[in-house]
C-alpha cells in the first residue's frame, strides 16, 4: 500500500469535507429523523407517541405492503436484467458508428428529457381500451382476442406499467457509450489483425472493459426500481386492487392518511432492502475493484 503524505491527507480531508457535511445534513439527519419517527404514531400535526416496533409489525402484516415489496423486486429485475442489457446491446451497436449514430444517440435520450407525467399520460392513452392504439394494433395484426383494458386488468396491469419504460434505454446507453468510447483503439486494431470478428471483439474486449460501468448502470437501474414512484402514481395509483402497488407509493399514501409513523417505517424497510441489493451487486462486480 502506498503511503499517503501529510499534504495529501490534508487535501483528502478538504476534498471529502463538503460531500460529508452535505451528506450529513441532508441524508444522515433526515434518515435519523425518519428512523426515530418510525417508532412512533404520528399524524404530522399532534405530538408523536412512542409505539415501539408496532409500525413495523403493522406493515409486515399488511398484504398490500408485502405485495409492494414483490412488485418492487419485479421493477428491480426489469431495470437491472432487461433494461440495462438492452442498453448494452444498443450501446455496442452505436459504438460501431453506423450511419446517423450521433442523431440516434441523441434521440434515444429524448424520453429522459420529457417529464414522467407526460410520458405516463401518453402510455395511459396507448393502453386505454376505448381509444388506445395497442388494442388497435392487435386488431390489425389479427390478434383481436388479446385486446383488453391493459391497465385495469388484474393480470396485465403490473406488466403494462413496468414494461413500457424498460425500452427507454437512453439514460444507461449514454453512460455505456461514453465508457466504450474511452477504450483505446489499439486494442481493437490488435484484435482485428488476429482475425477477430466484430462480435468477438465485443465479447472479448469491449464487454470486459466496460464491466464496471455495466455494474454501475445495473445498480442505478435497480435502485430506481426500488424507488419507483411517479410512473405508478400517475398511471394506476397502485390499482387495480393494489396489484401495481410499490413501496414508495405505499408510504406516500400513508402520509396522505396522516400516518407518518407507518410511512417512515416503510421508508426504513425500503432502505434496508435497497442496501442489500446494492451490496449484492457490488459483490458480483467486485473484480472491477483493484
Amino acid at each position: 500500500m502506498r503511503k499517503i503524505s501529510i499534504s495529501d491527507k490534508i487535501g483528502m480531508i478538504l476534498f471529502l469535507a463538503p460531500a460529508v457535511i452535505l451528506f450529513t445534513v441532508f441524508f444522515v439527519y433526515p434518515v435519523g429523523f425518519i428512523l426515530v419517527t418510525s417508532f412512533t404514531e404520528w399524524d404530522g400535526m399532534s405530538s408523536p407517541v412512542f409505539v415501539g416496533l408496532r409500525n413495523y409489525t403493522t406493515i409486515f402484516k399488511d398484504p398490500i405492503f408485502r405485495l409492494a415489496i414483490r412488485n418492487n423486486i419485479g421493477w428491480v429485475i426489469a431495470g437491472g436484467f432487461i433494461q440495462v442489457p438492452l442498453a448494452v446491446i444498443v450501446a455496442l451497436m452505436l459504438s460501431k458508428k453506423p450511419f446517423g449514430w450521433k442523431a440516434l444517440r441523441t434521440i434515444y435520450y429524448f424520453p429522459n428529457v420529457i417529464s414522467t407525467v407526460s410520458l405516463s399520460m401518453m402510455w395511459m392513452a396507448v393502453y386505454n381500451s376505448e381509444y388506445g392504439i395497442l388494442n388497435g394494433l392487435l386488431k390489425i395484426l389479427g390478434l383481436g382476442h388479446l385486446q383488453r383494458n391493459w391497465l385495469g386488468d388484474l393480470h396485465t396491469a403490473f406488466y403494462s406499467v413496468v414494461l413500457y419504460g424498460v425500452f427507454y434505454i437512453g439514460y444507461f446507453m449514454i453512460i455505456l457509450l461514453a465508457d466504450i468510447s474511452s477504450i483505446p483503439k489499439s486494442y481493437y486494431e490488435a484484435a482485428s489483425i488476429d482475425g477477430a470478428t466484430k462480435i468477438q471483439q465485443d465479447f472479448y474486449i469491449t464487454l470486459p472493459m466496460i464491466k464496471g460501468t455495466i455494474g454501475t448502470c445495473m445498480t442505478v437501474a435497480m435502485v430506481y426500481g426500488l424507488r419507483q414512484f411517479e410512473q405508478t402514481y400517475v398511471m394506476t395509483n397502485g390499482g387495480p386492487a393494489n396489484k401495481t402497488m410499490v413501496m414508495v407509493l405505499y408510504l406516500f399514501k400513508k402520509i396522505g392518511d396522516f400516518k407518518y409513523g407507518i410511512a417512515d417505517a416503510s421508508a426504513v424497510v425500503l432502505l434496508l432492502i435497497g442496501s442489500l441489493v446494492i451490496l449484492t451487486v457490488k459483490r458480483i462486480f467486485r473484480t472491477e475493484n483493484n
Binding site: 441524508f27 424507488r227 408510504l251 446494492i278
Partner: peptide
C-alpha cells in the same frame, strides 16, 4: 464511507419532505 454515500441513492424523496 462510499457504501454509506451510495445507499443515499435509495432514500425516497417523499419521506424527506418534513426534515428538509
Amino acid at each position: 464511507i462510499f457504501s454509506l454515500l451510495v445507499i443515499g441513492i435509495l432514500v425516497p424523496i417523499n419521506s424527506l419532505m418534513v426534515p428538509y
